[in-house]
């Protein structure tokens, strides 16, 4: 008898949790998560009927979750590749991409390296493992210590495809998150790494203590462009900028979020600026 009573009680409890709440689950890019968090907080102020949950983990994680139908929106620092688009098509998913902004990827080193800028060839040579000692670039002699993200990161793919054009050196230390890269670069006198601009700067735009943000000489030019001057980003002079894309699967209700966000663009622009993400310009890529 008691057994049936417990079963009944359990069913009753389960029934209670079936209350309908409009929730939007967002997952993906680590470099984008802070910006989207700002957007979501602002959006929830405007529309109290919606609750938004956001987690990072990397663009690849977000896209995989979107394709597996586990979330409503995926944040990504890269476009979907052909395999992913094919997978979506096979499973009857219509993916709606929506470009939010461009994220400036900045190159940071430990201050004791002593360099202020690199050109694109030097940058590729360092991360591909051709240059293993700083002396080759005229800096303080010492081994080059590479820091980056893991292959589930959209910036990993973006950097590899657009900056290196080949594979990363196998000696690249693959950190779990962008904050860990900053921490490691601070403590390693031969360190170089790449991070989203928002992670390398304070809210007022000045670089964070203990690291040096390098200027980049664009291909075919001679003068270095620093990502720390906002004009260089908004005018598209600074080369490594990855698109921050949010992709929604075609589930009713889900795809409405990004468009409502862009409709409120002036209101959210101010909060976005604090995270280091700037206005999207297509020709920059």
């Amino acid at each position: 008898m008691a057994k049936y009573l417990w079963t009944g009680l359990l069913l009753l409890l389960l029934a209670c949790t079936g209350r309908r709440v409009e929730t939007l689950v967002i997952k993906g890019s680590d470099t984008e998560v802070n910006a989207v968090l700002q957007l979501a907080e602002r959006y929830m102020e405007l529309d109290s009927a919606v609750s938004i949950s956001i987690t990072g983990g990397g663009s690849g994680v977000g896209i995989a979750a979107l394709l597996n139908g586990k979330i409503d929106l995926a944040n990504s620092s890269r476009e979907l590749n052909s395999h992913e688009l094919q997978y979506a098509e096979q499973h009857g998913l219509r993916i709606v991409p929506h470009v939010l902004a461009a994220d400036a990827l900045v190159i940071i080193t430990h201050p004791s390296v002593g360099l202020d800028s690199l050109d694109m060839t030097q940058l590729a040579g360092l991360f591909a493992g051709d240059v293993t000692d700083w002396q080759a670039l005229g800096a303080r002699p010492g081994p080059v210590s590479l820091y980056g993200r893991q292959s589930n990161s959209g910036t990993f793919m973006y950097f590899r495809d657009k900056v290196l054009g080949r594979d990363f050196s196998p000696t690249l230390k693959q950190m779990n998150g962008t904050a860990q890269i900053i921490e490691a670069v601070r403590n390693d006198p031969g360190a170089i790494g790449y991070v989203g601009l928002g992670y390398a700067t304070e809210p007022d735009g000045s670089p964070r203590a203990g690291i040096r943000v390098l200027g980049i000489v664009p291909a075919g030019q001679t003068a270095a462009v620093s990502p720390l001057h906002r004009d260089n980003l908004t005018q598209g002079n600074y080369p490594p900028c990855a698109p921050s894309t949010s992709s929604a699967s075609a589930k009713p209700g889900a795809a409405s979020a990004p468009s409502s966000i862009s409709n409120n663009r002036p209101k959210v622009a101010a909060s976005l600026r604090q995270t280091g993400i700037c206005r999207w310009k297509k020709e920059r890529l």
Binding site: G57, G58, G60, V61, I63, A64, L67, N68, H83, E84, Y87, Q150, S151, N152, Q174
Partner: peptide, 11 residues
């Protein structure tokens, strides 16, 4: 641990 979360099934 790093790669399982991002790998499409069946590849």
């Amino acid at each position: 641990a790093i790669e399982m979360g991002e790998t499409p099934q069946g590849t």
